[in-house]
Each structure stands twice: as C-alpha cells, then as structure tokens.
Design a protein around this nucleic acid. Structure first.
Lengths: 285, 285
DNA sequence: CCATTCGATACCCCAAAAGCATCAATCGAC
DNA sequence: GTCGATTGATGCTTTTGGGGTATCGAATGG
C-alpha cells in the first residue's frame, strides 16, 4: 500500500521506488503484484506516462486512510504502554469524594489528558475485592494493615470528630472524650462497609471501657449526618466531612481523636502503565 | 495484525496459529516480532495463561479497525473496477434536463446505487470540450456528425416546434412552414451555445429562402420561452420543452419540422468502468 | 511425582522480495 | 529521420524473512 501511494503521488516508478529506498525493478514488480492480487488495473502506464485509473483513484484514498489508521495504531499503542493514553479505573470510598478525590483527579487529568479516568465509587470492602480481581487499577481507600501485594501511598491523614444535634449536651463545653459517649445512641456504617472506621470507633470506646450502642447503621456517611440532624443519635465521622455540615448539626473535636490514613493503593502486579503517574501526582498533592 | 487479532480472540498461541493456517512456533515468533518492532508488550503470557496488557487491549481495537478498513479497500477497489461503485461525471445540455436525463438518472441509480452520479449541466460546446479532456465520463447532447473517438448511442429523436405569444398571427390556423417565419423576430440561443439547434433553424429558414432575423440570443431555453411570453418574438424550440409551457405561450407544429438526435456519448478511450452500464440503461430507456 | 499442556528456542528450508543488468518503447533534439 | 535519453518491463542472481519440525522448559493437575 505504501508503494502504491508513493507511485500515485509521484506518478513515476523510478522516483517512487527511490522514495521507498529501493530500486525500480522490484518496485514495478510490487505494483504489478498488487494489481494481480486485486485483479484490478490501478495505473495506466506506458513508457512515457503514468496515470491512475478510476479504481486507482478510489484505492488511493482508501490506502491513505488505512495507512493513517495503521500508523496511528502503532503510535497510540506506544502511548498506551507509556501510560500517556488509555484508561484507568480508579475506585474510591465515598467519603474520599469530598476530600482527596477532586484534587487528585484534577491534577492527574492535567498530567495525563489522554488517559480516561473511570471513577468507581464503592464501599471499602468492595474496593479491596475489585483491586484483587483486577477490576480496578487503583483505589483511594482507608489505610488498613500492611498488604504486601499492594503498592500503597499515604495521601492524607484524617481523624474522627464527633457530630451531635444542635442543643445536645455535648454540643458545647470541653472537647469530648471516649467516656462522653457512654449511653449515647451511636450511628455508624456497618463493619461490612467501612471496617476501618468501625474498628476505630470501637477501639476508641473500648479505651474508656465503654461498649458502644449502635442505634442505626446506614451505609452512607451523608445518611449518618442526616440522622444526627434529626436528633436520632450522635456519630463519629471523618473530619474531612465536617467542613460544610447542614444546619442543626454541630461538629466537636475529640480528645485523643482516632486517626486513620487515606491511601492510594494499586496491585503491585497491576499492568496498567497509567498507574505510576497517579502515585506521582498523589505525592505532589 | 491478523496474527495478533487471532491471538487476542483465542488467547491461545496454538489455536490462533491453527486459525492462521500455520504451526505454533513461527506464530509465536511473529507475535514476538510485533512486540519488538512496536517496543511494547502486548500479551502477558506464561506457559499456562495468555492475557492482553492494557496496551494490547487498545491495540486490538485499533487492529480490528485497520484490518476492516483494509479489507473494505480491497473489496471496494474491485467494485469500482467492475463499475459497481465509484463516480461518474455525466454532462448534459440544459434542455435534456427536461426530457431524457430524469429517467436516465433514475434507471441508472437503480442499477448502480453505489455509483455517485455527478451531473454537470453545460452548453453543448463545453460538453464536447470536457469529454475530450476527460473532465466528463459521458454526456447527453445533440447528435452531431460522426465522431470516431466517441461511443455514441441514440436516446431520443426530437424535433423543433414553433412557440409564439398567445394572439400571435401564427397562434392558430394551419401548421406553419418555414416561409411563415419571414419577417418574424426570432429568438434562439447563439451558435456558440447550441450549434446543432442554431444550424437546424438556419437550414429550415434557408429551405424557404428566408434569412432569419434573430432579435435576441439568450443562452437558456427557459429565457427564450419567457421572452416569447412577453411578446418579444417567436422561437423554435425542442418539442420536449413544449410540454408545460407557461400561460400566454402557444406551441405549434411545424411543417417538415427539423429533427435532431439526442445521444449519449462517451470517449472510447474512457477508463471509467461505470460508463458501459449507462449505455445499457440508455438502451432500455 | 509423573504426565500433559503450552509457549519458547534451535535449526533448516524455501519462497518472496530486492538488486543488477538489460531490453523495448517513446519522445525530443539536431 | 536518426540518435540519444528517459522510463517502465523482464531475466537472472542473491538475500532475507517467514514457515516447518523437533525439542526444551515451565506450569498444572491427578
């Protein structure tokens, strides 16, 4: 096809052959071979003139399109392999959507505009499973225990703070400690959804010898806040969610507040070459 | 590329090689060669599993598109060479637009729906020139003298008839003969536009010893009719144009009306394979 | 622990493609 | 009109690339 395009552009066998870095005889034979395999006369030639037939005209346009597609495919596959292009499936737990995800996505999209970020908002346990199965390339989640098969990088540290309805006995005064939670109806996501948070809450209570009483166990942090707003209990939620609380809800600092990591993680065996830049961006964020 | 697509679809070197009608070792080498020339790992393989890398996934889609384009190009070039597809530049003189062209175009488009008809409405002298220069593949025009370099086929015979303003002295009574035109202001296209018509009119007048007086010489037959309508003269126009005359214009038969041929013609040296079917259709029309 | 499966490697061979020399046709110049 | 130059086609030789067979090594499953 390149031979034919060269011939069509020069209309001269010798010059076209030179452009293809070969001598004229094999070039002529190649053109003849193309015509034979196609069973179609592409160029009308005598020893003095070379002209395209109508079929040749049409074929020229098609050849250019095919060759351009071919070259683009070869170029793109290198970009994909270099992580400059392609797709990246990024999972994240819901509350990260309100803290690190927006900045991370923005920075990454600036660094890799041709990588299509596919955002998957899931609960932490699902994220873990999807990472293991390769259905996610990377994820932003809680920093759980050491996971040897995961590359992990700290993005942020967060801490729990207490939210109570306005007018609640803990809504003012000294910062609350774990013992303040005695007798309170707690609202928290179930352990199957966010084990890290749940464990942190349980440990915090246990440090004061308290057995927490969970009145409701919704899955979404926003639901928790709403329930607190309605006076149905109190909750310990990540501080990053306390920025713009609804009316009627008060956030309080906790004494010795439980802290936890928000990390970016990806399978070490992951093959997506677009992932490393995500860690680079996360390090700068 | 076909090798890679086969491998990507089977994810099995042996099976893919069989699909390509070859044995597994050279097939493995080809895949390795592709990866080497691209400088990109396309498939992750060990002796037990074969899986595409992200780059391979992307490349697979591109390969399918390129191969499909390639196959389509090979298929289409045969269609073009067979006259089943492509373009056909068809010239025609203006008055043919009202007689043979509509039916001819309809029949041809039904027979060759993938041939794009490019209609060029021109004056007969231009048509002749454009045919000679190859800027037209075929044309519908007046049957002039024998032209050895043209393939010619009669489509219709037409004759001149007289049009006069309503109320004109020739608007009723016996059919007019050439002598009736004596003293009339004639309106006709100039010889440079339609030599055949002009010659026919001149010959007709000469047969009665009359020297015609041309009052106006517009290029378009429709302009002629309008001028007649305004009472500015009389005209001899092709009968095929007399079908739907405007109000105020009367068409009359002529005694011994000059006849002329409307022919389809194309250069015998023409290379457009879509032309022969045009003659076939014209023969049936 | 052995047999089987599957991709990789080694070696060989052939055919396709490239190079070289030459021919034939065409066109321009004198 | 003849000669020379240009240009595509053809014949022959060489080389390279792609394919075949045999075999190896790793991984898997009974």
């Amino acid at each position: 096809m390149r031979y034919f395009v060269a011939l069509a552009e020069t209309l001269h066998f010798g010059h076209a052959a030179a452009r293809m870095n070969m001598s004229q005889p094999p070039f002529s034979r190649q053109i003849a071979a193309i015509e034979k395999t196609l069973g179609v006369r592409l160029v009308e030639r005598n020893s003095r003139n070379v002209a395209l037939t109508p079929a040749g005209q049409h074929f020229l346009a098609d050849c250019r399109a095919v060759l351009e597609g071919f070259d683009a495919a070869c170029r793109d596959v290198r970009l994909v392999a270099g992580g400059m292009k392609g797709e990246l499936k990024l999972g994240f737990m819901m509350h990260a959507a309100h803290s690190v995800i927006p900045a991370l996505v923005r920075l990454y999209s600036e660094a890799r505009p041709d990588v299509r970020l596919i955002l998957e908002e899931r609960i932490p346990t699902d994220i873990e499973e999807m990472l293991a199965e390769g259905r996610l390339d990377a994820a932003v989640t809680f920093g759980a225990g050491p996971a040897p098969h995961l590359r992990t990088q700290l993005i942020a540290r967060d801490r729990l703070c207490l939210i109570v309805p306005a007018g609640h006995r803990l809504a003012a005064g000294e910062p609350a400690g774990p013992q303040s939670l005695a007798g309170e109806r707690l609202i928290a996501a179930p352990a199957t959804v966010a084990p890290t948070l749940r464990t942190a809450i349980a440990t915090y209570c246990a440090s004061a010898g308290i057995t927490p009483h969970f009145a409701f166990e919704p899955r979404l942090q926003h639901t928790i806040i709403r329930l607190v707003q309605e006076g149905l209990g109190v909750a310990l939620i990540p501080q990053s969610l306390c920025g713009d609380l609804a009316e009627g809800v008060v956030a309080r600092l906790l004494v010795d507040a439980p802290e936890f990591d928000v990390v970016l993680c990806a399978p070490r065996a992951g093959r997506n070459p677009a992932v490393p830049e995500l860690f680079a961006v996360a390090g700068r964020a």
